[in-house]
Amino acid sequence: MSVLIFAEVADGAIRKSSQEALYYGAKVAEMMGTTATALAIGSANTDALAAAGRFGVTKVLHAADGALNEANSMAYASVIAAAAAHEGAKVIVTAKSTLSDGVMARLSGKMKAALGANVTDLPDLSNGFRVMSSIFTGKAFAVTELKADVKIIAIKKNAIVPVETAALATVEAFAPALNDADFSVKITGQTKASGAISLPEADLVVSAGRGFKGPENWGIVEDLANALGAATACSKPVSDLDWRPHHEHVGQTGVKVSPNLYIACGISGAIQHLAGVNSSKVIVVINKDPEAPFFKAADYGIVGDVFEILPKLTAAVKAL
């Protein structure tokens, strides 16, 4: 009856975004009077997996078959279903991500599971099983009852603040039979922005808009982001103009972020942009137009020229 958490692996260890899911899953297990088991798929370091215990998980199943090193939503869904059967798990927790989206959709079909996406808080188990989900791209929330026997919870970043202990989890090899049909999609190549901080996972984001006039002016945005250790993002017009890559586009049809700090520079704040950022904890807006609608959604604002203000901010961060 344990709670199963899909823990995404990157560079041999559990991704930071999945640590939150581990803690969330352990909390749900506690509420249900059971234990939490994590499932890590792909090659990983055993000590790094045991560290999942710090987030309240007692056991980690490790599916280390080399065929699973490349993320494959069909095969991953099959492995998770096998692990759920192995553990008798009826509740499956994941961090919402580009990978988990495809995997959990598949798993929902496979297990006829009720899926709560973009969940923002612990479930309410007082009468049934209810979760709070962010909907309308952050413009509202829905309290949704998950009515199927098997439930999948995909949590949004910052759904819970993990508290770590010194505990270690036991790591068990898990080797379910793999199905050839799950490998008909071939991965032929992969490119990742090296060194850069992944935008959906970032705690701090510096975002810039058309106010920067051209891609050649992004240096001061990157300077501030580097000084802060922040990820860079942009508005839709900027990615449409190819000034910046699409994966930096934040908004209704782009990446949805919920960092601790979102600094919007030279972005007026169209409702479609706000939809992608309004679950950020603190929003700073810098714009030369005092009437920019973004100021109404901000916690701190500066009216002024981004070309003058950003270098000042960068210097102030470096002086901290």
Binding site: A10, A71, S97, T98, L99, V185, K186, I187, T188, G189, Q190, T191, K192, A193, A196, S198, L199, P200, E201, H247
Partner: peptide, 9 residues
């Protein structure tokens, strides 16, 4: 994919 793209067929 997170922080990049993957070619698949």
């Amino acid at each position: 994919i997170e922080g990049g793209k993957q070619t698949v067929e």
